[in-house]
Design a protein around this nucleic acid. Structure first.
Lengths: 141, 141
DNA sequence: TGTAGGGTCTGTAGCGGCTACAGGCTCAAG
DNA sequence: CTTGAGCCTGTAGCCGCTACAGACCCTACA
C-alpha cells in the first residue's frame, strides 16, 4: 500500500493473522464499538497500530476465559467511558467465576447421568435402549 | 373449546404449562420438524395427545443434558426416518460425553486462571489491576 | 505500460435456537 | 351480549459472529 512506511501499521488482514482473529470479526468489533475506528489510508484502508492489536488480543483472551461480551465491555471501560477500578474488575471476575463454577457443577451432573446410562447400554442393533429410557425418565437438578 | 371431550387432548398453552416449555417454542419445534403436526379442532386450534407431551419432555430433557439439536433429532430417529438402534444411541452418547468432559476441563482451566488472578486483586479503587494484566498476558491452553 | 491476482472496501443476509410481538379469530364465563 | 383470555398466523428481533456480492485498489511481473 502506498503509505506503508517502514514499521508503522497493520492492514486488517495482517491484524487478523497476527491475532488469530477472523478478519470479518475485526470489522464487526469495530461496528459494535469494541474496537475504535482506526485511521485510514487515502484509499480508505484501515491501518491498525500496536494499541489496536493489544486491545483485540485482550478481547480474544477475555472471550477465551468465557467472559460475556458485556463484561468485556466493562473490563475495557466501555460502559461508562472510564477505566474500571480494580474493585470493579474484581467484582466482575468473582461473578464470572461463580458462573463458571455453577456451569462446571451442571456439567458434572450431566456427565454422571450420561456415563451411568451409557454404561448400561448394550450397544446392540436393537431399538430398545437404556439411554433413551434414561432421558425419558430422568430429571436433572 | 367445542370438542374438548373429557380426557382427550391438550391445547398448546396446556402443553406448555404441563412441560414447562415456552409456548412459542412448541410452535417452533413443530415448524422445524421436532414435533409432529398435531390434529386441529374445527377452528384450527392444535390438540396435543399424550404422545406429544412425552416427545416434548424428551426433547427438553435431552436439551438439559446438553445434547445438540441435531443429536436430539438423531435420538428421535428424525435423521433417516427410522428408530435409532441402541448402538447408534450409545455412539452419540459417548461422543457427547466426551464433549462434556472436554468442556469441564476447559472450564476448570478457566476457573483456575480466574481464581488465581482474582485472589491477587486488591479490590482497591485504583485502575491498575492484576486481573486485567492477567487477561492481557495469559494464554489459555 | 498493461494486466492478473490478491487484498480490501461497503452493505446485507444468514446461522441456530429460540422469543416476542402485531393483528385477527374463537371460546367460556358472567 | 360482552369481556377477557387464549389461540391463530406471519414476521422481526436477539446474540455474536460469518459469509457473501460487487466494487475498488495495490503490487508484481511481463
Amino acid at each position: 500500500m502506498s503509505d506503508h512506511d517502514s514499521e508503522s501499521g497493520l492492514t486488517r488482514g495482517e491484524l487478523a493473522r497476527a491475532t488469530g482473529c477472523n478478519i470479518e470479526t475485526i470489522r464487526h468489533y469495530e461496528k459494535i464499538g469494541m474496537l475504535p475506528h482506526p485511521p485510514r489510508t487515502g484509499a480508505g484502508y484501515r491501518i491498525y497500530a500496536r494499541s489496536h492489536a493489544a486491545r483485540l488480543r485482550f478481547i480474544l483472551r477475555a472471550r477465551e476465559l468465557g467472559f460475556a461480551m458485556k463484561d468485556i465491555r466493562g473490563l475495557l471501560g466501555l460502559e461508562d467511558g472510564t477505566a474500571p477500578t480494580c474493585a470493579d474488575v474484581h467484582a466482575r471476575t468473582e461473578r464470572h467465576l461463580a458462573d463458571v463454577r455453577a456451569k462446571i457443577d451442571d456439567l458434572k451432573r450431566i456427565e454422571s447421568v450420561l456415563a451411568g446410562t451409557a454404561a448400561k447400554c448394550s450397544g446392540d442393533e436393537v431399538p430398545d435402549c437404556p439411554v433413551l429410557d434414561a432421558i425419558t425418565s430422568s430429571f436433572i437438578r
